[in-house]
Computed example of a mutant assay.
Amino acid sequence: MRTLALGAGIYLAAGVLLFAQAGTAHPVSGRIIAGVMGHEGAPWLERPEREAEERPSLAIKELRLEPGMVVADFGAGSGYYTERIARAVGPTGKVLAVDLQPEMLEMVGRRAKKAGLTNIELVRSTPEDPRLPTGAVDLILMVDVYHELGSPQRVLRAMKAALSPRGRIAIVEFRKEDRDVPIREEHKMSVKQAEQEFGAEGLVLDRRVDSLPWQHLLLFRVK
């Protein structure tokens, strides 16, 4: 069974509900906050067709990661991106795998151990606090996560404080501007919405990547 949410359908895989009901709170842009994916949905993150549908290898390339960087994979989930980032920043770098759900962090820990990666640190966040070190993170990445944050403005403020002088916040989000992207509307974001919400916290769009099949990759910096 497909796990993408088509039209008004619900997210299902093998009969398991993957996403909670969408919320009703409105951030600065006025969009509806989407429901959060539970740890039961982790297999969807690891689906074999993900590379063809989303091109995560291209997204990693466009992040321009360098050895020695400190990167936070916020909403790390099963560690799909975490592992790839850890390899890119190398043993002199560090990846902070951040997630609300301890079950997800356990998956990341097992993955790191199996891959022999020692540069991954597990961080359990709260709905309003990413628990990142002040002024120390070179890149904060959120892949299909930002639109689910219950308190996006508060989280952005905390993330801004965590950035190093060269720090950026990157989001990968399904394009709301594209009707052909087969994802429910509340799980999409437009560039305009992102700029409104990040702009309200003193962050500006630094670079925009539109070469992914279904998603925007947007990188923001402090004004």
Score class of each variant (00 low, 15 high):
79 G>Q: 02
119 N>G: 11
173 E>F: 07
28 V>G: 01
204 V>N: 06
126 T>W: 14
30 G>W: 06
52 A>S: 14
28 V>F: 06
216 H>F: 15
138 D>P: 12
55 R>E: 09
139 L>E: 05
46 E>N: 13
134 T>F: 12
171 I>C: 12
50 R>D: 06
91 P>S: 12
29 S>P: 14
1 M>D: 10
25 A>S: 11
94 K>N: 03
190 S>P: 06
207 R>T: 11
208 R>Q: 07
159 M>G: 11
58 L>T: 08
9 G>S: 15
98 V>G: 06
136 A>R: 07
15 G>C: 12
14 A>W: 11
75 G>C: 09
27 P>D: 05
20 A>D: 15
170 A>G: 15
94 K>F: 08
216 H>W: 15
121 E>D: 14
96 L>A: 07
102 P>F: 03
31 R>W: 05
159 M>K: 01
172 V>N: 05
65 L>R: 00
29 S>E: 03
28 V>S: 03
113 K>L: 10
105 L>Q: 00
54 E>H: 13
205 L>D: 04
178 D>A: 14
112 A>R: 04
185 E>I: 15
104 M>C: 06
205 L>N: 02
198 F>P: 00
218 L>W: 00
143 V>N: 08
116 G>F: 11
11 Y>I: 04
112 A>T: 12
72 A>L: 07
169 I>D: 04
60 I>H: 01
32 I>S: 01
30 G>P: 04
48 P>G: 01
108 V>R: 01
73 D>A: 13
101 Q>S: 13
111 R>T: 09
62 E>F: 04
123 V>E: 06
195 E>C: 13
58 L>V: 09
69 M>Q: 06
122 L>Y: 13
13 A>T: 08
180 D>V: 07
73 D>Y: 13
158 A>W: 07
37 M>D: 03
98 V>M: 11
59 A>W: 01
177 E>N: 09
119 N>T: 07
211 S>M: 09
218 L>D: 01
135 G>N: 09
194 A>L: 14
23 G>Y: 02
140 I>R: 00
18 L>D: 04
19 F>I: 14
74 F>H: 08
200 A>I: 03
24 T>S: 15
187 H>Y: 15
90 G>F: 01
7 G>F: 06
209 V>H: 09
197 E>K: 00
2 R>L: 13
25 A>D: 12
148 E>F: 00
164 S>K: 04
195 E>Q: 14
118 T>W: 08
195 E>T: 13
210 D>L: 01
182 P>M: 04
211 S>G: 14
144 D>V: 06
54 E>L: 10
24 T>I: 10
143 V>M: 05
182 P>I: 02
